[in-house]
């Protein structure tokens, strides 16, 4: 089974996240980066499928030079080789452009399965995997919690809202957008880190592909405004209680 895992490098959630002076992105002077969390679970799912079924795991990443470290981390965890679509440091692509780039890397690979995280922790489009599947003409399903390989097909468990799950069977090749938290992530062992140095990474300059890459522009990045509101409910206790429940359900959404 040949599995492609598409990963993204994003600012680490534990690093010092400050809005840059221009107000368009984060101040990257002491920013550290990490693999997008849902993508880490996509990689884990791919590696477990490989452990069970055999085959190859190829990790694909569209990102600037520094994103190479995320590819090598995936190789250290057990992926077999990498493809790096190198973008300029300041590139911000929309989901369609990223999917077009990824399709270019994937189209000659003829994979059985493409796994990716259901969304990125920085831009959070939640579209790239689905658009990639449409461009390739592959079946796709999102918010996947479990993957079972049947004879030439997949049975997957999707997470719906309110704790509902859905089981879907779909043919291969397919693109699955993986939910975070579905498995325990493995560590990059020291031997794995050492072996990763010998594994091939193909680098492709995105600009050299002649693809039409529509550029999204970020107008403004800002912290959510914090506001405090107090409301005093008056009336008979049973009415007040009913109002309170109503507000907790539909305004505060905590019930």
């Amino acid at each position: 089974m040949k599995i492609i895992v598409s990963v993204k490098q994003v600012p680490a959630r534990d690093s010092n996240l400050r809005v840059a002076s221009g107000g368009k992105w984060l101040d990257d002077s002491d920013l550290s980066y990490e693999i997008n969390e849902p993508d880490a679970f996509a990689l884990e799912e791919a590696l477990q499928l490989k452990d069970a079924q055999g085959g190859e795991v190829v990790v694909v990443c569209a990102g600037p030079e520094r994103a190479g470290s995320t590819i090598r981390e995936a190789l250290a965890k057990g992926a077999d080789r990498g493809i790096h679509l190198v973008l300029p440091e300041d590139a911000v692509l929309d989901a369609l452009s990223t999917a077009r780039l990824l399709r270019h890397a994937v189209k000659n690979e003829a994979p059985d399965l493409i796994l990716t995280g259901l969304q990125s922790d920085d831009l959070g489009y939640g579209q790239t995997g689905v658009v990639l599947a449409e461009l390739l003409g592959y079946a796709h399903a999102t918010i996947i919690m479990q993957v079972e390989v049947l004879d030439g097909a997949l049975r997957v468990k999707r997470e719906l809202e309110d704790g509902w799950f859905q089981y879907v069977t779909l043919p291969m090749p397919a693109v699955l957008a993986i939910q975070s938290g579905i498995k325990k992530l493995r560590y990059a062992t020291l031997m794995g880190i050492k072996r990763a140095k010998m594994k091939p990474v193909e680098t492709i300059l995105a600009a050299s592909l002649g693809l039409e890459l529509g550029r999204a522009a970020i107008e403004r990045v800002y912290l959510p405004a914090r506001s405090k509101q107090s409301q005093i409910l008056t009336g008979a206790p049973e009415q007040v209680a009913a109002q309170l429940v109503e507000k907790l359900k539909f305004e505060a959404r905590v019930l």
Binding site: W164, Y167, V168, T169, L170
Partner: peptide
């Protein structure tokens, strides 16, 4: 694309 949605399930907790 031959999708088959075979079942839905509601567990107590994920």
């Amino acid at each position: 694309r031959s999708f088959v949605s075979d079942s839905f399930a509601l567990p107590k907790f994920p």
